[in-house]
Amino acid sequence: MTIELPSPDGTLRTYAPRPEPFRAAAGTAFTSRTVFSAAHVVADPYADVSPDSPAAVDWDATLAFRRHLWAQGLGVAEAMDTAQRGMGLDWAGAAELIRRSAAEAKAVGGRLACGVGTDQITGGSLTDIRAAYEEQLAVVAESGAQAILMASRALAATATGPEDYQEIYGHLLRQSAEPVVLHWLGPMFDPALEGYWGSADLDTATEVFLEVIAAHPDKVDGIKISLLDAGREIALRRRLPQGVRCYTGDDFHYPELIAGDERGFSHALLGIFDPLAPLAAQAVRHLDTGDVSGFRQLLDPTVELSCHLFQAPTRFYKTGVVLLAWLAGHQSHFTMVGGLQSARSLPHLARAYELADGLGLFPDPGLAEDRMKTLLALYGVPQ
């Protein structure tokens, strides 16, 4: 069987899908790295909503996908940007997502960390921002999950300098009962976060970030860096206090960062591990046995797909992630919260299908092919 796929130049190319999927061996929990997948949410396709309405979520399918990730051995990073926080999923929806995922995690013994932000407000004083963070931190604490302190659009808009970040984060870390993960999300993921930590100069911002950590090392489990700059991540992780982990959020350079070097390595908290879960888990188990070469042989070929999904404008990578979940049979439809299934072009989606199929990511290649042909037919592409 073949499929006709549209190219960016407007022509069609014939592609022969892979006949057999990648098959991951069953394995135990990871021992060499802590690995989270930031998980997407599944929209309710039957809900009568507009792009401006509160998110309508298919809870059964959303939680089933989290069980899929846990079954691979991955932790779930919940209510992060992959779940469309600030891009269709509001705080009320995120709070429900956190509570439901936490209950599911307890039922199956899955590891869960949840995003804490300030997206219930759009601005305000530092006092307002602190209160918004505290409200969300309380929800996560009550759920029993680990907290990930996310970057705040409101803080980026209100802060007048580094001291405001130090005040807010210092207060939150002092009151947190358990160590948290600090998340530095770059403006390529969210333009509203330009100048975070009080400076648009990344070297200056890095120093402020490290000062916050150094002042509260016992309250920081780790940091998640999403700047898509491998050299900067490596330099930063080498300066972390003893016991503070670096979780890579670099969806362009993750194999080399997780593999590490003679001076250390990064753990992982990645959106790309949503579609890559079985393959990524198999790769990490190679690291568990000291087989760095086997790890790289499995994971290096996935970078082309990741770079494609996360190409600029990077914040729309979720569209490709959800497309692949549909093609893989994890959900029955290709619709997204806020209508973001329309955020990428048909040639972009076609290339995502081709790259994912080449990696063997679809458990049923025939189903993926049929569904891709259905999408192409909707756009008027003949087969």
Rank of each mutant, 00 (worst) to 15 (best):
300 D>C: 05
241 P>E: 00
76 V>P: 04
292 V>G: 02
320 G>N: 07
124 G>W: 07
316 F>I: 09
96 E>H: 02
112 L>C: 04
30 F>E: 09
177 A>R: 15
302 T>W: 00
60 D>K: 14
377 A>N: 06
42 V>G: 00
125 S>C: 02
116 V>S: 00
50 S>W: 03
17 P>N: 15
184 W>R: 08
119 D>K: 04
142 E>A: 12
379 Y>F: 15
22 F>G: 10
117 G>P: 06
198 G>S: 11
104 E>Y: 00
151 A>S: 15
153 R>M: 03
187 P>K: 03
312 A>C: 04
177 A>S: 07
2 T>C: 07
176 S>V: 09
257 L>N: 00
375 L>H: 06
337 V>S: 01
4 E>K: 10
368 A>H: 11
299 L>W: 06
180 V>P: 03
251 D>Y: 01
89 L>N: 12
309 L>E: 00
236 L>V: 13
236 L>G: 02
258 I>G: 07
15 Y>R: 09
247 Y>W: 00
283 A>Q: 04
382 P>E: 11
250 D>A: 13
207 E>H: 10
177 A>D: 11
300 D>L: 05
55 A>M: 07
193 L>T: 06
235 A>L: 11
312 A>K: 06
121 I>R: 04
37 S>G: 12
372 M>W: 03
372 M>G: 05
95 A>V: 10
178 E>S: 14
155 L>T: 03
167 E>Q: 15
327 L>D: 01
241 P>Y: 09
78 E>K: 01
94 A>Q: 13
36 F>M: 01
199 S>G: 08
226 S>R: 02
355 L>T: 09
324 L>R: 01
290 G>N: 05
346 L>T: 07
157 A>H: 09
201 D>F: 08
14 T>L: 13
70 W>A: 14
99 R>W: 03
38 A>K: 04
357 D>V: 13
198 G>Q: 02
300 D>S: 04
55 A>W: 01
92 A>M: 12
189 F>S: 14
244 V>L: 07
113 A>Y: 12
255 P>H: 13
12 L>C: 06
206 T>V: 08
100 R>V: 02
302 T>R: 02
51 P>T: 12
158 T>H: 05
14 T>M: 05
382 P>W: 06
28 T>M: 07
258 I>A: 13
299 L>N: 04
86 G>Y: 08
282 Q>C: 09
107 A>S: 15
39 A>N: 13
154 A>H: 10
191 P>W: 14
65 F>Q: 02
253 H>T: 08
133 Y>G: 01
300 D>W: 03
60 D>V: 15
381 V>T: 12
319 T>P: 04
283 A>C: 03
315 R>M: 15
287 L>E: 00
140 V>R: 12
82 T>S: 05
337 V>D: 10
245 R>Q: 04
83 A>E: 08
84 Q>N: 11
245 R>K: 12
250 D>H: 10
146 Q>N: 02
367 L>R: 13
64 A>S: 12
326 W>M: 00
226 S>T: 15
96 E>F: 02
102 A>D: 01
68 H>V: 13
244 V>P: 01
111 R>W: 08
79 A>K: 14
366 G>I: 14
235 A>S: 15
150 M>F: 11
187 P>Y: 09
295 F>S: 07
269 L>S: 14
149 L>W: 04
202 L>M: 09
299 L>E: 03
120 Q>V: 07
320 G>M: 07
171 H>F: 12
130 R>A: 15
200 A>W: 01
